[in-house]
Design a protein around this nucleic acid. Structure first.
Length: 480
RNA sequence: GCCCCCAUCGUCUAGAGGCCUAGGACAACACCCUUUCACGGUGUAGACAGCGAUUCGAAUUCGCUUGGGGGUACCA
């Protein structure tokens, strides 16, 4: 048990990186970090039909964006490659043949139609389906005859009846009656391995010590253990994680909105927040502090403390957390992330420094980077007065705008403190003379300058807009 | 149908027989702060699925029921 921990994340490139897969990757990563182990990425593309290059790239990009970088994998290499199953197709038949030679597996010549029929019969009799073993005792002559006819066999694992028990790190002791499992295929007739076989061969060859994955794989585990035993390989430790469910408690799928990490990023979620949030689904910090970066989580992480139940993916807390990260993030880094969302605006109107300032003063109330599109609009475009029309028509507003217009020459637009103080005097003046509440005075000004009743603080807006623009907007507002 | 997993506030969770009149976070509500919205602060409301058993004592152990999830492929 002193051997080095080796874990893997093994996605199938038949879709973009799912948020659930990202969580599984995270837990593998955290466990590797915590134990000083190695974390490998293996692409499971044995199903050529469903796999494609675009999805593979999305998986790479998403994992990298999350910062879950792998020690070994298809692109970085390693001592146990190749790390794409489609490049390992010459490996599996050898082990399958070995299993046949040792009597653990046999060739099966049944056609899909034969198999479908067996399923139908079982269904009509209402008994659980199990392969009939029709091909188990074929003689050499019979097999040769079938092969001469051009029928290429698949290879099935011969399942012996016994009670199989293993200890799952998160679920505890799990028991199975292998008598309920039929002889399952390990090699398809097209020469490629089935999932259960490829996983075991690869995990064995790649010296994986801990298999951390979703609990949808629990029922595969006894089959895989049987293969390990037949291969004479050491059986890794297993840890099965609860699933992430949608709010309606069904499997999280496209109809619930975003499911891929790349979708969340497009919506304006920060990868740090995503990772932090997803870590809290099943794991909880020992000190109760929930906002933590990956390194802090890794230091505190324990696989055997993971909750064994499913959890529901609700947006409220993710949104809150995303907002927290946005508020705390380094402003330059945040600006880099925010600018792509604002690409439809004329960003050249402002210097980089001013752009950072715009982000800085509008970041406070937002939960998503995409919220910035609306919240910063008045910095880039003339205000639209539809919403504040009534407000601007009031007597109060007229007075406020008139006075500000006549005062504005006295404002020092290069001096934040000066604008701040003058604005305070401005409010005081209206309060004393007309009894306007400070916030009413500011509403009028805000409405005129931005077309809104809420937004960034007025000092920053005035400074950023600069004198000419302020005067122009005041005049158009007065004309309403 | 059969096999397996799971079950604490609406949600994420703390809790490993007495520390629990069940703690925290998000969301909700109220108040405070304030140049708006917010942020922040302070409070309020809110849960051990049900039934049995073990025990002096159970959210914590066991059984059953119910509910939810997963699997049942030459898909991964």
């Amino acid at each position: 048990m002193s051997e080095k921990v080796r874990v893997r994340i093994a996605p199938s490139p038949s879709g973009n990186l799912h948020i659930g897969t990202a969580r599984t990757a995270l837990f593998n990563y955290l466990f590797a970090k915590k134990t000083g182990g190695e974390y490998v990425l293996r692409i499971e593309d044995t199903d050529l039909e469903r796999s494609n290059e675009e999805y593979k790239q999305n998986i790479f990009d998403s994992l990298k964006a999350l910062g879950l970088n792998w020690d070994e994998g298809p692109d970085v290499g390693g001592n146990y490659g190749p790390y794409k199953q489609s490049e390992r197709f010459d490996i599996y038949p050898k082990f399958a043949q070995m299993l046949i030679d040792k009597g653990y597996a046999y060739e099966c010549f049944c056609s899909n139609e034969d198999l479908d029929k067996e399923h139908e019969i079982a269904a009509s009799k209402k008994i659980p389906y199990k392969y009939s073993r029709k091909c188990l005792n074929l003689t050499k002559e019979q097999k040769d005859e079938l092969k001469a006819k051009g029928i290429v066999p698949s290879i099935r694992f011969k399942v012996e009846a016994k009670e199989l028990v293993f200890n799952d790190i998160v679920k505890g002791e799990l028991k199975f009656d292998t008598n309920l499992i039929g002889d399952f295929a390990i090699m398809k007739s097209n020469g490629t391995p089935t999932y259960n076989f490829a996983v075991v061969v690869d995990d064995m060859l790649m010296k994986i010590t801990h298999v951390i994955r979703g609990e949808d794989h629990i029922s595969n585990t006894p089959k895989q253990i049987l293969i390990y035993e037949a291969l004479g390989a050491e059986i890794p430790k297993f840890a099965h994680l609860g699933m992430i469910l949608a709010p309606d408690r069904s499997k999280l799928s496209k109809r619930h909105g975003a499911t891929a990490v790349s979708d969340f990023i497009k919506q304006g979620y920060l990868t740090e927040a995503l990772l932090n949030f997803v870590a809290l689904l099943g794991w909880s910090p020992s000190d109760g502090v929930e906002i933590k970066n990956v390194d802090e989580i890794a230091a505190d992480f324990r696989l055997d403390e993971i909750s064994s139940s499913n959890s529901i993916f609700e947006y409220e807390k993710l949104n809150w957390m995303n907002g927290q990260y946005i508020k705390k993030m380094d402003i330059s880094k945040l600006t880099d992330l925010a600018l792509p969302f604002l690409k439809d605006y004329d960003l050249n109107k402002y210097s980089r420094e001013q752009l950072e300032k715009i982000i800085e003063v509008t970041r406070e109330p937002i939960t998503l980077l995409s919220d910035l599109v609306y919240d910063t609009r008045y910095f880039f475009e003339k205000p639209v007065y539809d919403e504040v029309c009534e407000l601007l028509k009031t007597n109060l507003s007229k007075k406020v705008l008139d006075k500000f217009l006549s005062d504005v020459d006295g404002y020092d637009f290069k001096n934040e403190q000066d604008v701040h103080d003058k604005l305070a005097e401005f409010r005081a003046y209206f309060k004393e003379k007309f009894g306007f509440k400070p916030k009413e005075t500011m509403w009028a000004l805000r409405a005129a300058l931005t077309g809104r009743t809420k937004g960034a603080d007025m000092v920053s807006i005035i400074l950023l807009l600069e004198k000419d623009e302020v005067i122009e907007r005041l005049k158009s507002a007065k004309a309403i």
